[in-house]
Design a protein around this nucleic acid. Structure first.
Length: 403
DNA sequence: TGTCCACTGGAAGGGAGGGCTT
DNA sequence: AAGCCCTCCCTTCCAGTGGACA
């Protein structure tokens, strides 16, 4: 008990190294976005039409994760809103992150919620009727509605482009209001999946975001660190290291900021009054592990079993892991645990799912005479997946009992 | 040059579990 | 209560395919 008291006392008596931790959270939009001036200008230019009462073109924004697409969109909209208010204009906004809204229904629901349509049931209504309600709601008066579809590729891959099609045509149904759409995607190849009508309507304008390099990431981190931490709490070396790690991982600024935050938390936990390189290194492991563990734990049963089969094959020292091998292992595990295995067709979709989640790489390769199959590789730290499985007794038994 | 392996991936559909409207 | 409509996970059926080998 006294141990715990001591921990509490120590924590209380010490000044925190954080001054304003919120600055390091995902939804924080800073006053200045370094190295995105060009993109901000372009978007502002497009949206400025709204200030003269016009309908801005739809915009498509491409770029990898953490290149500032969402931040730029939110930033410009915030400024637009302020300017609009000065001019007595009122705009409506909706923001959907399609990655976390798994179905058409959820997407519509989020839009309805953001616009303030009113209470709608979690499920049950026909899609048309929700869409109608949204249309009726926004068409009550003359106004501009801006809808942001973030991580649009997820929506299209999961549920197709029906909703998108409806939204691109929505202006035909509206008498008073007008709708502009901002589509954001990480997947550059994703245009191929879209119906050409949707694509042409969506990409009236497009903005491309390039990954940040280490120096740019450093500038971003520096700016955030100055607000987030007390003076001198982050060493130059630590900051450089965070920037370097994130630059290696495709210039993802969000990851960089996460990393900095966690490094700070670790430093604080360990009673250090400075964030050092060693804290950053620990933070890197922790961030990665947490993410993978959570993802794996939330997978549906047969996706977990499939992943477990892959893990078993890796453990066994198999160098080439093919669909067939996984299927045989998977069926063995199912038999062992008393589950009815899914078909090969389903398994194939599961591979695609796991690949989308970034857990595996599974490109289709041909061995000529010996057929075509996926070449499956785990692309996250092996230990974090194991860790996720270890919390479930069924899987632990399999790991022990099956060679 | 054709064959043929080991799959891949599209299309259609189903049923359990949810909740709506009437 | 009946009759719909939705999602999620899954099945059945099957045409299609890259390239090493004969």
């Amino acid at each position: 008990m006294s141990d715990i008291d001591e921990i509490f006392d120590r924590l209380l008596s010490r000044e925190s190294i954080f001054r304003n931790k919120r600055v390091l959270s995902h939804d924080y939009i800073p006053e200045v976005l370094p190295h995105r001036e060009k993109e901000i200008k372009k978007l502002a230019y497009i949206l400025a039409t709204a200030l003269k009462g016009g309908k801005p073109s739809n915009v498509f924004m491409y770029g990898k994760t953490g290149t500032g697409k969402t931040a730029v969109a939110k930033y410009v909209l915030k400024k637009l809103d302020i300017k609009g208010q000065q001019l007595g204009l009122h705009f409506l906004y909706a923001y959907v992150n399609c990655r976390y809204k798994t179905s058409n229904y959820r997407v519509l629901l989020k839009i309805a919620e953001d616009l303030g349509v009113g209470r709608l049931p979690e499920t049950g209504l026909p899609l048309d009727s929700i869409f109608d309600r949204i249309v009726r709601f926004i068409d009550r008066k003359e106004q501009l509605v801006i809808i942001i579809f973030d991580e649009l590729d997820w929506l299209v891959k999961k549920s197709g482009d029906d909703i998108l099609y409806q939204f691109t045509r929505i202006n035909n149904d509206l008498k008073k209001a007008q709708v502009s759409i901002i589509g954001i995607t990480n997947d550059l190849k994703f245009r191929n999946y879209l119906d050409s009508r949707v694509l042409s309507s969506l990409s009236e304008e497009s903005i491309i975001f390039h990954p940040y390099n280490a120096q740019q990431l450093y500038d971003i981190l520096k700016q955030r660190a100055e607000i987030a931490f007390v003076e001198g709490a982050v060493t130059e070396d630590a900051l450089r290291l965070v920037a370097a790690i994130a630059a290696q991982e495709h210039g993802d600024a969000r990851r960089a900021i996460d990393l900095l935050r966690v490094a700070g938390e670790i430093a604080e936990r360990e009673g250090s009054d400075k964030v050092l390189e060693e804290h950053v290194i620990k933070a890197k492991d922790e961030v990665e592990k947490d993410l993978v563990e959570a993802t794996v734990r939330e997978l549906p049963l047969h996706e977990q079993l499939t992943l477990l089969s892959i893990i078993m094959l890796v453990k066994r020292g198999e160098r080439l892991i093919t669909t067939g091998k996984v299927q045989r292992m998977y069926e063995k595990i199912c038999e062992f645990l008393g589950y009815k295995p899914v078909t090969l067709r389903r398994l194939n979709d599961i591979f695609a799912d796991l690949e989308m989640l970034g857990i595996i790489n599974a490109p289709v390769e041909s061995a000529g005479r010996y057929g075509r199959t996926r070449n499956i590789k785990i692309v996250v730290p092996f230990r974090s997946i194991l860790k996720a499985f270890e919390s479930d007794e069924r899987f632990t038994i399999v790991l022990k009992e099956i060679p």
